[in-house]
Nucleic acid binder design. Structure first.
Length: 269
DNA sequence: AAATTCTCCTGAAGGC
DNA sequence: TGCCTTCAGGAGAATT
């Protein structure tokens, strides 16, 4: 699934192919994504792409007359292809610029394509989002202040996009393991000291994953061949039943907020 | 306000 | 072999 590192890598990959190009077509084969894809072909044709930005896991393709907002959901992927490449079954949207196009494929259709002619930072999906995880705004003091007033599991707070964006199930699971914090522990019961460790680890692991994504997704525009570039580095995610890499305990699985949470009962308290 | 549950959808995995 | 069931999962919406 596209985590923040993968979205950022996609952004870096498509940006040079799109900026300063002029849109010649906008093809929607399947409008039923997370929300109905708007019919903006007339608005887009003839428009020049000014920039490709990212906010949280949203990609922002900016034009003079508005912004296309793309979210990859959990199975979405973007590729730059020759415009005449035949579309596959799950290839739902093309943004065509002359002889090449940006193609969105999304088998599970949890992704979305939105349009706004206002400042995208003020968009309903974006305005209430928390700080970027790699920014200074996401720090121990900030996160601790929020945790103090939350009785929910620390993992749920870490994954709350209104608190901090881009930390999905995988990175929350890994960060908590590295920080030695039990994922179900009430957020208000985690000391500032331990929050410091957690915040530091979450930043480190995200930064490292972006590096990895940069390496393995470099040729993403050719094919989809990207078999989980970060998988080798994961210590516990998806490994319940296996041995903890730090001690000899067996990793356990727990459901927290509808999501699988693997943890070490020995190392994480 | 915060917490919990439900929802969208398909592919993969497991059972028989 | 193949059909059927179950379930993961980002994140907004609905509900308590």
């Amino acid at each position: 699934m596209p985590e923040l590192p993968e979205v950022e890598t996609s952004r870096r990959g498509i940006e040079p192919h799109l900026v300063n190009r002029v849109v010649t077509d906008f093809i929607v084969r399947q409008p039923k994504l997370r929300w109905r894809v708007p019919d903006v072909k007339q608005l887009l044709c003839g428009q020049k792409i000014n920039a490709v930005e990212r906010r949280a896991k949203y990609l922002l393709i900016r034009f003079d007359n508005g912004t296309l907002i793309i979210h990859l959901g959990m199975s979405g992927s973007l590729r730059i292809l020759p415009a005449d490449t035949p579309a596959g079954f799950h290839d739902h949207v093309d943004l065509v610029c002359g002889d090449s196009c940006l193609r969105l494929r999304d088998p599970r259709r949890f992704g979305s394509v939105l349009w706004t002619d206002q400042d995208p930072q003020q968009h309903i999906r974006i305005i209430d989002l928390g700080p970027e995880p790699l920014s200074d705004s996401y720090n121990a003091e900030y996160f601790h202040a929020i945790c103090k007033q939350r009785k929910a599991p620390i993992k749920s707070v870490l994954m709350d996009g209104k608190v901090v964006v881009g930390i999905g199930n995988i990175y929350a699971t890994e960060s908590l393991f590295r920080a030695g914090i039990h994922p179900a522990r009430k957020a208000c019961n985690v000391s500032l000291k331990r929050i410091e460790t957690l915040v530091a680890h979450s930043k480190t692991i995200l930064a490292a994953a972006i590096e990895q994504g940069g390496t393995t997704l470099r040729d993403f525009q050719q094919q989809d061949g990207k078999p989980g570039y970060f998988v080798q580095k994961l210590a516990v995610y998806g490994k319940s039943g296996e041995k903890c890499p730090n001690c000899d305990a067996i990793l356990r699985n727990l459901k927290i907020g509808q999501r699988a949470s693997c943890y070490c009962p020995q190392c994480q308290r």
